[in-house]
Design a protein around this nucleic acid. Structure first.
Length: 725
DNA sequence: TTCACCGTGTCT
DNA sequence: GACACGGTGAAG
């Protein structure tokens, strides 16, 4: 009897161990990595075979047989299984949770077969006359089939044949039925992989990458290139070398929707070698894309975070573009960082990783300095355009001068000048909605969400107050819910308010707004960006998504309304994120022929993150920031794990958090610092109270090992965040 | 996660 | 005594 170790694919921490099942002889050879259907309890579940055990082991339970095999070829390679295991130990999630990251999201057990479409082909002896004349529609369908030589159900339906007619035709003796993989990806012209010219600086950076690709050697490169220095060209060159090796290139971008310039560049170069992966694809499109990669019909995958889990064991290159970007960190469920997974996968696949950024994460730059990564630099913009000039405006001074508007005089000037010159401007404001809070003038009571510990935001579109943490929304109250006063006032400006203000002050300006509210509507985000690129708007106003990696030729001006919004968040990465945001936003200006101008409004004009970004001085910023981190033991000069206990009763949450603190303090007395339990800024979301615990130490691998096998690991309502941001 | 089990409490 | 509810533990 063959006994297989099976991991049950279910998100329960208690199922975090292999279960033993019998593999019936009838199923033939079932390799490790294959997904199977198994009986569990009374039900049927999906499982993954991760190993075999010798028959000789004595078992103190009865084994059940595997019901059926769900993959023709194993979905998981041994590398994928190993990486998932590594992930589960590093990020403190269950093995099934880690494995699930490599699979395609599907809720039920029904169809594991990759989606196929039925095609009908006429056999040579099939004629229209062989169908009785009164079956008119069948005759027409056969005539159509003969004329095109074969058609899918969908094509027949498009021709106006009903499903019953198609079914009848498919059962005719002269018709052959064949299943084909669905073919929904865009078909680009296949073409020769072109010669990709590089500048001297690019060629210098590329040389060691090329060497690693062709020698199939793991190495990690940090490509530090100022905005507009042509990093993408280096990626394309590297991808070409990888394709020439007949290996898969994985290109990660922070948000696929907002980075389709990258996709366009790759498709221009590689045609249908490129497969794009993002969350809006249907399941059959996903299967289809993976199938193309596995069969090496395509060699390049471009995608966001989750594309790092590409199911292939022959990766020849991984690129992490804009590697500093926070969206590479998954912030719920399994809180992995795609950059870390990329490094692990590259290591097991013996291939290079390129981490590219104009503002590398402090973590990556630190590792480059220590020699863990190889540092490659592109210090100049490609056509030697100068970096934009940056003007800092101290908003305290503006207030003293009696300017209470959201636009400083300098900002107004910049807008005016840009409009006059018929050039384009990007304006950044990190707050969406209309006004950020609503308060009663009489009693000072802010209007809060009844389920969360936050104030409601007024949204103009539907005249509603909305909670940004849950789905709660309500009409604006006419009178104060507390004292009955009618003096309800709106405070704080969001993107909607500023849009209105801009329109009022500059009535001729064509303004586009881009924030979560716009981007959430399918296709709208892309429309806005395309419209702006095409020159249909003068000003693009939005939240941080307008600052990310776009290349708009016509933009000469960038305005940042509140440089401090991120700086004031109590996070150890606040300075880093501010520097990134400002530098990236400023980098959008002056990529074409004209010089760029940037105005930054701030209440902290002396903060080093702001001063250094004004000077485009990454290294200067790094130096100050790393000193601060070293002094306090923050990453990368130490490790952290954050615990968040959620419970509907506050004291219950506190009680469990306290138990965690006590346990970890007791066991790791001298090695780590345990902070908490404490409440975060927002201490209740969706009626659940949140209590946090943070631990910090030079290295936490022993702590992780301990937690993995302790009650903390399986504690209900506890979210563990390794390397929190 | 899902399901059965058990103890408790409430209603008839 | 019948049933509903919530907490607990096991699943091969």
């Amino acid at each position: 009897m063959r006994l297989a170790e099976v991991i049950v694919n279910r998100p329960a921490k208690q199922l975090n161990k292999p279960f033993t099942y019998e593999v019936p002889d009838a199923l033939g050879v079932v390799p490790v990595g294959t997904r199977v259907a198994i009986p569990l309890g009374r039900g049927k579940e999906e499982g993954i075979i991760v190993g075999y055990v010798p028959e000789t082991v004595s078992l103190n339970f009865t084994v059940k047989p595997i019901l059926s095999v769900l993959d023709k070829t194993p979905w998981f390679t041994s590398e994928m299984l190993a990486t998932a295991k590594r992930l589960s130990h590093y990020y403190l999630c269950s093995y099934p949770d880690a494995l699930r990251l490599f699979t395609i999201d599907k809720k039920e057990l029904k169809s594991y077969e990759r989606p196929k479409v039925a095609w009908l082909y006429p056999e040579p002896f099939l004629t229209v006359e062989s169908i009785p004349a009164r079956k008119k529609r069948q005759r027409e369908a056969v005539a159509y089939l003969l004329s095109v030589g074969g058609a899918s159900y969908d094509m027949l339906k498009e021709q106006g044949f009903s499903l019953p007619i198609i079914k009848q035709v498919s059962e005719l003796s002269g018709v052959r039925r064949e299943e084909k993989y669905r073919h929904t990806y865009t078909n680009y012209d296949a073409r020769e992989i072109p010669d990709i010219p590089l500048t001297t600086a690019q060629a210098k950076a590329y040389a060691p990458i090329h060497d690693a690709i062709i020698h199939r050697r793991f190495s990690s490169f940090l490509l530090h290139g100022v905005t507009g220095s042509g990093k993408t060209q280096v990626y394309i060159k590297a991808a070409a070398a990888c394709v020439a090796e007949n290996r898969i290139a994985v290109i990660l971008v922070p948000e696929i929707m907002l980075t389709d310039q990258m996709v366009t560049r790759f498709v221009e170069a590689f045609g249908d070698e490129v497969v794009v992966f993002h969350s809006k694809l249907t399941i059959s499109e996903r299967y289809n894309n993976w199938e193309r990669l596995r069969r090496k019909d395509s060699h390049i995958i471009i995608g966001a975070r989750s594309a790092v889990f590409a199911p292939t064991d022959d990766i020849g290159l991984i690129v992490v573009d804009e590697e500093h970007d926070g969206s590479y960190k998954q912030e719920d469920m399994v809180r992995y960082h795609a950059r870390q997974i990329a490094l692990w996968r590259a290591e097991s696949n013996s291939c290079p990783v390129i981490l590219g950024s104009a503002t590398p994460s402090i973590d990556s730059y630190y590792k480059a300095k220590k020699g863990i990564y190889t540092l490659l630099e592109l210090p100049e913009r490609i056509h030697h355009q100068p970096l934009p000039t940056v003007l800092l405006v101290d908003m305290k001074e503006e207030l003293l001068h009696g300017n209470y508007s959201v636009f400083s005089d300098a900002m107004t000037d910049l807008i005016q000048r840009t409009l006059e010159k018929k050039e384009q401007m990007i304006m950044l404001l990190n707050r969406r909605g209309y006004s950020t809070f609503v308060m009663c003038r009489e009693c000072g009571e802010p209007v809060n969400c009844p389920h969360c510990d936050v104030s409601l935001v007024y949204h103009r579109a539907n005249e509603a107050l909305r909670c940004h943490y849950c789905e709660y929304h309500a009409p604006v109250p006419e009178v104060c819910p507390k004292c009955g006063s009618r003096k309800i006032k709106f405070f704080g400006s969001g993107t909607q308010r500023v849009e209105e203000e801009l329109a009022k002050r500059f009535p001729r300006a064509r303004i586009a707004r881009l924030d979560q509210d716009v981007a959430a509507k399918k296709g709208r985000g892309e429309d806005v960006l395309h419209g702006f690129a095409a020159g249909e708007y003068d000003i693009l106003l939005g939240t941080q998504m307008v600052a990310k990696g776009h290349d708009f030729e016509g933009v000469t001006a960038v305005g940042i309304l509140t440089a401090d919004s991120v700086l004031n968040i109590p996070l150890y990465t606040a300075a880093e994120r501010t520097f990134d945001l400002l530098t990236q936003a400023a980098g959008r200006a002056g990529r074409g022929k004209s010089e760029g101008h940037v105005v930054i409004q701030t209440y902290n004009p002396l903060h080093y993150a702001i001063i250094k970004s004004k000077a485009h001085d990454y290294k200067g910023f790094y130096k100050e920031e790393i000193e601060a981190r070293e002094a306090l033991g923050y990453p990368p000069c130490g490790e952290m794990i954050h615990f968040r206990m959620q419970h509907e009763k506050k004291d219950k949450a506190m009680q469990i958090a306290t138990a965690i603190v006590e346990e970890l303090s007791k066991v790791f007395d001298n090695d780590v610092e345990v902070l908490g339990p404490y409440e975060e800024g927002v201490n209740r979301v969706r009626n659940l109270y949140r209590i946090s615990v943070m631990i910090r130490g030079d290295t936490l691998s022993d702590v992780k090992k301990y937690i993995y096998h302790s009650w903390i690991f399986t504690q209900d309502g506890l979210a563990i965040d390794v390397d929190p941001m």
